[in-house]
């Protein structure tokens, strides 16, 4: 008697599973899932038939052949296994989709973080720029010009991915001058040897100030070494040739060109032709020949022109 209870339970269970899998087949949108579900419907139908056969077998003269029932069970196995394989593939696809969604979400968060970092970097630059301006307006304008020249050279050299860094290094390359006493920084005459030695400290002080801000530490090499000379006679490290960071070699040319062409209280600025000749004279001695060979055509073709030292330019930049 209890066997029949089991058979009825099996028939009801497999019958319900058949109906449910049929509903799933009809409501599934994915073709691969529908195929797996269809196989499940077939498997559940077979087992429902087998269970029903068991159930009615206790009624005299009822029930199908045992042999047919047994072979029906043989078919059940591959059907269920193939259906499981279909579900496995669907699960793999879902896992891949979830992984892609996670990567996409991480990508968005990274982009937002980079934007935030970029905003932070700009605000630090503005603060440091304001610091230079408050101390010495000439240095502020000079920094602005050096940044412009450096970007022009960098663009001509194809360093498009480093142009922002070049501009920022140009703007901050002399920030160390805030540590130089006024009597030296604003002296309306040529410096003595001792004063010049003090003045030379500004490159390292600039690097220390910038290096203290993690968002700007990639600017440090260019700023620290912008007074190195191609022949090794520069400062602070006396580096030679290509041992000098590329950004520093570019800043050196831009810095020297703006210093030569700008008016100072103790001298007037050189005309463009003289400055051009001086650059060429220092090619391979003070300056990297490649940088000079890049910059001179920019001057000749008037792609780069002398920058204005009116305070309007500074006000425009500050705003």
């Amino acid at each position: 008697m209890i066997v029949h209870v089991f058979d009825i339970a099996a028939a009801l269970g497999f019958g319900a599973a058949t109906v449910i899998t049929l509903i799933l087949v009809l409501t599934t949108r994915r073709t691969s899932s529908r195929r797996a579900m269809t196989l499940l419907v077939a498997a559940m139908t077979i087992m429902t038939a087998v269970s029903l056969n068991h159930t009615i077998s206790w009624i005299p003269d009822q029930g199908a052949e045992d042999l047919a029932e047994d072979y029906a069970q043989v078919i059940f196995l591959p059907l269920i296994l193939y259906a499981m394989h279909g579900l496995y593939q669907r699960s793999e696809t879902e896992r891949t989709e979830r992984a892609l969604a996670s990567v996409s979400e991480l990508d968005d968060r990274l982009a937002a973080s980079l934007e935030e970092l970029s905003d932070y970097r700009v605000s630090v630059l503005q603060s440091l720029g304001a610091t230079i301006d408050a101390r010495d307006q000439y240095t502020a304008l000079h920094s602005l010009h050096v940044a412009d020249y450096a970007v022009a050279i960098g663009a001509a050299l194809g360093m498009h991915e480093r142009l922002d860094e070049l501009e920022q290094a140009g703007l901050l390359h002399d920030i160390g001058k805030i540590a130089i006493p006024d009597v030296i920084l604003l002296k309306p005459a040529a410096l003595t040897a001792q004063e010049y030695a003090t003045m030379q400290r500004h490159a390292e002080v600039s690097a220390e100030i910038i290096g203290g801000t993690p968002a700007l530490d990639d600017l440090v090499p260019g700023v620290r070494h912008h007074h190195e000379r191609w022949d090794g006679s520069g400062y602070p490290a006396g580096l030679t040739g290509e041992a000098i960071p590329m950004e520093a070699r570019i800043l050196a040319v831009a810095d020297a060109f703006d210093a030569m062409t700008s008016d100072r209280p103790y001298r007037t600025g050189m005309p463009l032709d003289e400055a051009r000749a001086e650059l060429l004279a220092q090619r391979g001695r003070q300056f990297d020949p490649t940088i000079i060979d890049t910059f001179i055509p920019l001057l000749d073709e008037k792609i780069v022109t002398l920058r204005d030292y009116s305070t309007t330019a500074l006000q425009e930049w500050s705003s």
Partner: peptide, 10 residues
């Protein structure tokens, strides 16, 4: 066993 399997599938 078949009863358990049927109920589990359902």
């Amino acid at each position: 066993a078949y009863a358990i399997a049927g109920v589990c599938f359902a």
